[in-house]
Design a protein around this nucleic acid. Sequence first.
DNA 1: ATCCCGAGGG
DNA 2: CCCTCTGGAT
Length: 194
Amino acid sequence: MYPDSRCSLEHENAFQLLVATVLSAQCTDARVNLVTPELFARFPTPAALADALQEELEEIIRTTGFFRSKTKSLLGLSAALEDRFDGRVPSSVEELTSLPGVGRKTANVVLGVAYGIAEGVVVDTHVKRIAYRLGLTRQTDPEMVEQDLIALLPEKERVVFTHRMIDHGRAICVARKPRCAECDLHDICPSSLV
DNA sequence: ATCCCGAGGG
DNA sequence: CCCTCTGGAT
């Protein structure tokens, strides 16, 4: 299933991935990919983004939702990258989550996709829902779900696992009305409706 | 009305 | 733990 699953947020470097992942909160990545070309063309570096006008930034990213707080996060994290990390995206969870607007989920995405580091597991809304339905966890708090998945998955499997869960969550195991009859896992899934 | 690759604040 | 932030798609 999903042999070639990978990150679907369009990006060319760690900085762009960080920005796109911040924008992806409570928003489809397809919509994020609609605004990032203009965003990256106007503000290609942390230094450029840190100097952006708030109003201009809000206008560009408005359709991704939560645009005021996301604008604040992008301005804050760009300034922090300049001030504390020499304009580079750091490669540890502690440093990444010290940036405004960056929590464990975003940090794990950047570490895994940009740097190939998978000490944690990305737990987004799809991973959380599907792990629960499959009986891989009984937890509902994302950090607790992550601990269960870390115990289940060797490091090499963690990055691709998340992307497969996301693909599966979009195509089959959707939130509202899962298509269990089309699911390859229906006979081993404790939540299967068929 | 519910959901989308969440995070911060109370 | 709870709440709020936000627009677009279904």
